[in-house]
Design a protein around this nucleic acid. Structure first.
Lengths: 201, 201
DNA sequence: GTCTATAGGAAGATAGAC
DNA sequence: GTCTATCTTCCTATAGAC
């Protein structure tokens, strides 16, 4: 396990796609979908973003829906793997809460555009695609519940607090404005402390 | 001032529209926009919802955009007036926080469909409409900041805690599923207590 | 693999009868 | 005020040249 004072902030997000048009189009789609929403974004917006004709897109992706699925899957897998990595080697329940909330919040601040897509465009996914995404989300929620479980007796209380704390991180995607909002790492630290206060009662 | 053990939950939301097609269409639009999103909803969806032909809609609203503006304005004004009403006659800072968070959360649970529209479709508003809505939002945010201010020394800390607590309530609109989620009043009480813990540090 | 051109279809809004 | 029919525009996706 590698330890570093500078935390990872998800820079390897797009590395699972080959360098070239396929990656560039996915990044463009994440940016455009995040800005305008899936249904308000046209394939022309995405193509223009990478300096390509509207038709060129279809050599690399079968449809606009497949583009949404691809970036949604990459985003969800990134959240899960970053959250998991943040917990590595930490055993104290309090510190695990801190690490999870910090990592989750930083991810949503750094990737606020992609975060909007993965959190608010679930209903735009085709049913088959949604099944795959829902499975990843269940894993992430299970991971969070596992981290918070040591602090609770009853399942009901655990469930409500888990939802509430994830809400803090997810809602960052809605309001975050680069430049005008706090630095992601500062925000992540602050929210991790908030979560600890919240759970202390 | 009227005091009641049963809290208001915004039942008078649509009363500012006359009974009849104009109100029915607004309610239908809130339901359909909330379910599918503004751009994925067609004027045919809305018309069918009230048993009207697509053309009939345009007798009562000039455009789909005006329908969005109307329900967004009604929703925002309702949040503001309910929040304000919840604070009436309460002077203890702690109790004011409790009342505000409780009311705000209940509103987003009870009106989760409309809440999705007012919180997540801001970018779908036309610029002129957005100006009007943004002014109401500033009033609501100012009200919240005023309630939380007595508990903070520095503005930065006030700002962050205000955003965080409003996030809890707003995000309810994203995940709330009637029947499967807690009763709105139970949730409102629970979140009000959460907020108090959160601010106690 | 990229382009230009366009097919095919759906959506917002209007025309005009009743 | 509501309907049926339709206009116009725009968007996804494909065809076919290079």
């Amino acid at each position: 396990m590698k330890i570093s004072s500078e935390p990872s902030v998800g820079g390897e997000l797009w590395e699972m796609l080959p360098v070239g048009p396929r990656r560039a189009l996915a990044q463009a789609a994440a940016s455009e979908f995040g800005k305008r929403g899936y249904h308000a974004t046209t394939t022309r917006h995405i193509a223009e973003h990478v300096g390509m004709s509207p038709a060129g897109l279809y050599v690399h992706y079968a449809s606009k829906a497949e583009l949404l699925f691809t970036i949604s899957r990459i985003g969800h897998e990134s959240v899960l793997s970053e959250s998991s990595a943040a917990l590595e080697g930490i055993s104290s329940p309090d510190e695990r809460v801190h690490a999870l909330v910090r990592s989750f919040t930083i991810w949503h601040a750094v990737n606020h555009n992609l975060a909007r897509v993965i959190q608010y465009e679930l209903r735009s996914l085709e049913p088959k695609h949604y099944q795959v995404i829902a499975a990843i989300r269940r894993s992430t929620e299970a991971l969070a519940a596992e981290v918070f479980r040591p602090l609770f007796r009853d399942a009901e209380s655990l469930s409500m607090h888990t939802v509430a704390i994830l809400s803090l991180g997810i809602d960052v995607a809605r309001w975050y404005v680069p430049g005008r909002s706090p630095d992601p790492i500062v925000l992540g630290e602050a929210y991790a402390k908030l979560a600890r206060n919240l759970l202390r009662a």
